[in-house]
């Protein structure tokens, strides 16, 4: 018997289309609407010269965080909940490869979107550096998208989980800070929680990537922490998919 392989590369266009017609399209729509609004808005600062259009840094940050979470929230869970896996994985395709490709394609769409914001931002008023925008989105996608995709292997509301982790990370980071005025025992516990939890608090440092001349050396640690955490989450997700009982 000859070994057969799914033509997963050729299937990429369908995965891309599914994303564009679903969460990707909604994200693109929101981004374009925000760009249009920004192009018509003007910021007037007292005594600081003529009115200007607002910067689009925040839009890159929005795509990097919420866009990544939204893009990956239903990556695995929808096929599982709706039973689509039954026919998909009776074909000669490994679920890990299938979802790894889908994850990469969704990330690619967000990167193109970040580049688009950067390009249109320059056209409107305040340029967002393209390299910084794309790099920031890539790191945030691997991190926030990885954490969310990992959760989507086990439950349908991965976006809720990621938002809870994001919100929880703020007080935990404060309690884990070296100068936090708490008992050393509790401080050690919060410190441990801070290290184990997804490092959403590092997002503040990563935003420096969007500056016109980022200090890459200064944020290399944050990039490594976030990207590393995301990669570990993705490996964990792949492990879960391999061990998953699809039927329930």
């Amino acid at each position: 018997m000859a070994i057969v392989r799914a033509r997963l590369g050729a299937y990429a266009r369908w995965q891309l289309r599914d994303f564009i017609l679903g969460p990707g399209g909604i994200t693109i729509g929101i981004v374009l609407l925000q760009i249009w609004i920004a192009s018509r808005a003007q910021i007037i600062e007292s005594g600081a010269g003529p009115p200007r259009a607002p910067s689009l840094d925040w839009l890159v940050q929005l795509v990097g965080l919420l866009g990544s979470i939204y893009a990956t929230s239903s990556l695995v869970s929808e096929d599982r909940a709706r039973g689509y896996y039954r026919f998909l994985f009776a074909k000669p395709v490994g679920p890990v490869r299938y979802y790894a490709q889908a994850f990469a394609l969704r990330g690619l769409v967000l990167l193109v979107l970040a580049a688009l914001i950067s390009g249109l931002g320059a056209w409107i008023a305040h340029p967002v550096p393209m390299l910084g925008a794309v790099a920031y989105t890539a790191v945030m996608y691997v991190f926030a998208g990885g954490v969310t995709a990992c959760q989507s292997t086990v439950w349908r509301f991965a976006w809720v989980g990621s938002l809870i982790l994001y919100l929880a990370s703020i007080p935990v980071a404060q309690l884990a800070a070296p100068d936090a005025p708490i008992d050393p025992f509790w401080h050690a516990l919060w410190r441990a929680a801070h290290v184990l939890m997804p490092p959403f608090s590092q997002q503040t440092f990563l935003q420096a990537m969007l500056a016109s001349a980022p200090n890459w050396g200064g944020i290399a640690g944050s990039i490594a922490w976030c990207a590393g955490y995301g990669l570990i989450a993705l490996v964990a997700g792949a492990f879960v998919i391999r061990r998953l009982e699809w039927a329930r």
Binding site: R86, F89, A90, P92, V93
Partner: peptide
């Protein structure tokens, strides 16, 4: 399945 494929028709 991943090397040779199975023709599968499910009840659902």
């Amino acid at each position: 399945v991943e090397h040779y494929r199975v023709g599968y028709l499910s009840e659902l």
